[in-house]
Write a protein that binds this DNA or RNA. Structure first.
Lengths: 216, 216
DNA sequence: CGAGCGTTTGAACAGCGTCAAAACAAGTGG
DNA sequence: CCACTTGTTTTGACGCTGTTCAAACGCTCG
C-alpha cells in the first residue's frame, strides 16, 4: 500500500469540507468546493497552487487567442483530475460547465509526497502522460479529420468513457465546436445529419443515444 | 525546458557506440545509432523499450489514419528527447527526416533510476510535461488558426528555438503540411505569399530568413 | 404568456483542398 | 559538360467543405 506518512491535511478556508482525497492513488487530503455554471475555477497564467478533481458536474479547460477565438483543450467529467502542472503557472483557464463540486489539493503537498514516495511520483507522471496521450489523439482529429468524423469521434469517446450508448452532454454546441475546431452551426448540422441517417437518436438536445456508431 | 548542452562522448561512423548519456539530468548511459533519411526509428504500437535523443539530424513523430492521412505530432531537433512513454507501447512512429545520429537509452534503466532518485523521476515527468505544453499550443493552432497564421507560428517557433532569424528546414513542404493540418500546396502558397509581402526571404526552398515576422 | 437562451436550418460566401502541369534542383551516366 | 531521370516545390484553375450571416424554432423559467 501507500506510505501513510504522505497524508497531508490541508486546512480548508471558508466552508469547505476537508478530508477528500484527490484519487485513490494520490492519497492526499484536499478540500471540496462548489462552482456555479460558467464560473472560473482558475485562469490562464495564474499560479498553479492547486490540483483539481471533479466530484460531480463537468469542467472545461480553455485557451484563448487575443481576438477571442477559443480552443477547449479538454472536458473533465466526475473522477478526472485536471490543472496539474509541472511548472508554476497554469497554461489554460478552467471553468465549470454546469454547477460542479471540485476537490482542490495543494500542489506543493503532492510534490512533497512524490519526493518521499516513488509511487506518488509515478502517479503524477501518469496523470500528465494520460493527458498527453489524449491530446495526441485529438491532434489527429484536429489536423486531419472531417467535420463528421470529428463529431463522431467525440461522441464515441464520451460513450466509451461513460460505458453507455446513451450519453448526457453537459456542454453546449458552442463548447463542442470550440473543442473540435468547428463552428457551432457545423456541429449542429452534423448532429442533424446523424439523426437523419439513423446513426444517433436525439432524446433531447443534450442527450444522445448512439445507434450505429462504431469505431471509425 | 531541459539542458541541451549535455555532455556527449564523440560520434561514431556506423553502428552503435556505448556510454552516451540521454541528457545531463538523466545520467543513464545509452548507445548511439545512425539512421538514414526516412528510416523508421520505431513504429506505432511497438514496445517502448527505449527512450531517444537527437544528436544530429532531425526526427518526426507521426500518427496515421487507416486511409493514409497523416499527422506529424512533432519535430525533434538536436538535443531533444523523444519516444518517452509512461505506458509500455509507443503511441506513434518516429522516422529520421535526414541522416541522423540518435542516442538510445533503455527505458527500464530510467524508470529504475527514477525509483531510487526523486530528481530523475521529476525529470522524466518534466520531459512529458514539456511535450504536453507544446501540444496544447499546437492544439490552438490546429483548431483555430488560419493557414497563414499556422505557417507563421511554425516559422516563429523554429526561429525562437534556433535563436536565429535564419532557419534551415530539414523537412519537406509535405511534412510541414502534415504537422500544420494543411496540404503541401497551401504551405507552399503561404511561403510564396510571405515572400511577396516581404515577411520572409527564401535563401533556398529549405532555408528561410524571417524579415518582418513578430509574434501574432 | 412572453422573455431569453440555446439549437436548428437556410442561403451565400470564401478559404483551403484537389487535380494538373510547369519549374526547379540534384544526381546519374553517356 | 550535357541529356535524362527523379523528386520537390511552385503555380494555376476549379470545386467542395465548412464558415458567415440571418432567421426561425423550441426549451425553460419568470
Amino acid at each position: 500500500m501507500y506510505d501513510q506518512s504522505a497524508q497531508i491535511v490541508v486546512s480548508p478556508p471558508h466552508g469547505c469540507k476537508p478530508r477528500v482525497q484527490l484519487s485513490s492513488r494520490l492519497p492526499i487530503d484536499g478540500m471540496e468546493m462548489s462552482f456555479a455554471a460558467n464560473e472560473e475555477i482558475f485562469g490562464e497564467e495564474e499560479e498553479a497552487d492547486f490540483v483539481y478533481r471533479v466530484i460531480d458536474g463537468a469542467v472545461r479547460t480553455t485557451r484563448l487567442l487575443r481576438d477571442g477565438r477559443r480552443q477547449i483543450v479538454g472536458f473533465y467529467m466526475p473522477g478526472e483530475v485536471f490543472g496539474l502542472e509541472c511548472g508554476d503557472t497554469h497554461r489554460f483557464s478552467a471553468e465549470a460547465i454546469v454547477d460542479s463540486n471540485i476537490v482542490l489539493v495543494k500542489r506543493a503537498a503532492l510534490t512533497r509526497a512524490a519526493e518521499q514516495d516513488g509511487a506518488v511520483a509515478h502517479e503524477l507522471w501518469q496523470v500528465t502522460a494520460h493527458d498527453l496521450e489524449a491530446l495526441q489523439d485529438h491532434m489527429l482529429l484536429l489536423g486531419r479529420k472531417t467535420a463528421a468524423e470529428r463529431v463522431a469521434s467525440f461522441l464515441m469517446r464520451l460513450s466509451k468513457q461513460a460505458k453507455s450508448q446513451t450519453i448526457e452532454l453537459p456542454m453546449s454546441r458552442g463548447d463542442i465546436a470550440d473543442h473540435l475546431g468547428l463552428t457551432l452551426e457545423t456541429v449542429s448540422r452534423m448532429f442533424s445529419q446523424f439523426v437523419r441517417d439513423g446513426t444517433i437518436h436525439l432524446i433531447s438536445a443534450r442527450c444522445v443515444e448512439l445507434k450505429r456508431l462504431q469505431h471509425a
